[in-house]
Simulated scan of single mutants.
Amino acid sequence: MRILVLGGTAFLSSEIARQAVAAGHRVTCLARGSAAEPPAGVAWVQADRSLGADSYMALAGGWDAVIEVARDPVPATAALTALAGRTGHWTFVSSCSVYADHSTPDAAEDAPLLQPLAPGTPSTPENYGESKAAIERETLRATGGNAHLCRAGLIGGPGDASDRYGYWPARFARDNRAAVVPDIGGHATQVIDVRDLAAWILTAAEHGVTGPLNAVGDSVPFGDYVAESQSAAGFSGEVLDASEDWLVAHGINYWSGPGSLPLWLPPGHGGFCTRSNRSARAAGLRTRPWQETLADTLADERSRGLERHRKAGLTPATEALLAEELLLSR
């Protein structure tokens, strides 16, 4: 297949390009390359997509498949205008953040969506879901519905720059000082390995799969994930369970970002990590055991440095202060 990856230098898009080359496809990546270069074996077209239609002038001929990972509707719409008419199959890597409700467990692809971002409204992290919903709408319009809307969940695995899924195994590997853990053992986590997601996107393109499909892994209780993280890391210290109310009162953030406890979700998100993946599995999605993803993530965390600055999680100093207060309150 002649495949165009709109991106190819970061986490998921790079993995897609790498696997596509390994599978024998002819792969072109269109990317700025300001932070990294695409994998070896691809044809690299350097372009700044903020320039609009001019970005695609060097892309000649037709494509068997185009894979789009954008989060901003403006460049995504420009790409559709320039390329959809000469592309056999279009994949848009969307997100489960397009759903309007995150409280219902086992929700499928027919769940209500957010209102798409209004034209002319800047795309920001705060309207991420609305931005992805807008790109879904434009993708369906431009392709006449002949597109795969790959609604990915939390993506983990080696190379994850968000520092969310890797926080816990890295924390337990870092040292054996008392670890502060939210008391949510029965709550669900749900991650898809970046390598499995990339393989699924290529499989879907090869077989002409279309429509919206939840690309998510199976749900795993947070307590099981934390226990496996401790075991994999060889942690022998004390685990201090902290109630959700106590953590909120101490200014600890949910889910991601600085000063957070990753994978801990706010109230009303009981369905966020329990999305149904039945339709995607029926269409060909395959995922590896989550323990394998965790082990490989830990190996990646060790190689990147357990003491490095992280985009998500508690700093050792903040955790030490919290642990001291929890121990004193006994």
Rank of each mutant, 00 (worst) to 15 (best):
H89P: 11
L149A: 04
A233G: 08
D224M: 10
A76V: 13
E68F: 06
E15V: 15
D183E: 15
I3P: 09
N253V: 11
S219M: 08
L80Y: 10
G271T: 07
A178H: 02
V181Q: 02
G157V: 07
Q230I: 12
E138F: 14
G61I: 11
A23K: 03
Q46M: 02
V27Y: 10
F235Q: 03
V181N: 00
H309R: 15
I155H: 06
R2M: 13
V248K: 11
R195S: 12
N253D: 14
V69F: 15
G186V: 09
R151Y: 05
A320R: 13
A134H: 06
A82W: 12
G186Y: 02
A133K: 10
P289S: 10
S103N: 10
E228R: 15
R32P: 14
P122H: 03
E319H: 03
W290A: 00
A111S: 12
V226M: 14
S279P: 05
T203Y: 13
Q19T: 04
F92C: 07
T124G: 02
G217Q: 00
G223N: 05
G166T: 04
D64S: 10
T293G: 13
D296N: 07
F222Y: 15
A133L: 14
G156S: 01
V21K: 07
A323I: 03
Y99C: 04
L314F: 05
G62A: 14
W63I: 11
Y128G: 01
F235E: 04
I67L: 15
P258C: 00
G237R: 01
V98P: 12
T274S: 13
L298P: 01
G257L: 02
S131L: 06
P75M: 13
S329F: 08
L285A: 01
Q291S: 13
S34F: 03
T121H: 04
V181Y: 03
A70I: 08
